[in-house]
Design a protein around this nucleic acid. Structure first.
Lengths: 149, 149
DNA sequence: ACAAAACCTACCAGAATAGTATGATTTGAT
DNA sequence: ATCAAATCATACTATTCTGGTAGGTTTTGT
């Protein structure tokens, strides 16, 4: 029941891109230095995010990546599902239909309802957060908002 | 983000034991036939459940296993955590402390709060259900309660 | 004594995870 | 035109996890 590094790192990449958004493209090299993730591994992650339409990328010199939309327009759930494939706790809820009826035991399965409920609370939770929410958290930690003044 | 077969099967074993509870010990062979899981694999699962104190087991002829308590006294979450080790979505929340502070980045981690929340909704959900709830579900499916009369 | 059953330990094949390696292609700047 | 920086594409690899299988030992009721 673990989120893979791809999912966790993807979130960090998106936050990094948002925090350093200056209109310019941001090179993986820069993200790598800040996040401590190798450029080669970042390439895999960024490729996924790119295919999902989350980024604008530019090849060549001075190329790089930047967010395609504004932070509050990304649901954390969408980012995670893109990387993880599905957040369903069991396989039969992860298929295209997603309601578990393709399992031969579904008719008589006493646990199906329970699993559907777990699937629901997980997905509803991750969809309650946007990238902006995580950035706000970062700002608070970094002292960006000092309410003590 | 998947529950392993061990966790899913354990739930089925517990339900099976509850439904066939006659005061006698129930042999793995019987559970195997009903659930379609090999005796050898069941041994692994039952060993875990036993160590957690969930079962009363008897060796030798006419031996077997039965529930140590009554179905409503088992939280589904306890059964799953026993088999999965932890239901935490990320490693740093799965340790003994369980609050993520042993990660060197925890101080500056903008996602920690988010992950803690996910951990919370998952564990709170699975702890809202008892084994009895799953059995009731089974009874309904099997037509055990026919309110139409 | 015997048979049935749990218990214990070890082994194994395949998949997933978490990367690493190599090189091709594109592009802006000089 | 050339060069360097960067993405893009593909392949490889080591380790761990998953989902079992196998063989033998011990216990116990009859």
């Amino acid at each position: 029941m673990k989120i893979s590094t791809k999912g966790r790192y993807a979130l960090r990449v998106m936050i990094d891109l948002a925090l350093h958004d200056s209109g310019e493209y941001i090179a993986l090299k820069d993200i790598s230095e800040r996040q401590g993730i190798t450029v080669k591994y970042l390439e895999q992650i960024v490729t996924n995010l790119n295919k999902a339409g989350f980024l604008r990328s530019m090849r060549g010199n001075n190329g790089g990546h930047r967010l395609a939309r504004r932070p509050y327009e990304y649901k954390v759930g969408d980012i995670l599902r893109t990387m993880e494939g599905s957040l369903s706790p069991i396989e039969c809820l992860a298929d295209s239909v997603g309601d578990g009826v393709n399992c031969p035991r579904s008719e008589e399965c006493p646990t199906l309802g329970f699993w559907r409920g777990l699937d629901k609370v997980i997905n509803e939770y991750v969809d309650r957060y946007t990238l902006q929410d995580l950035i706000d958290q970062e700002q608070i930690i970094a002292g960006g908002y000092d309410y003590s003044i």
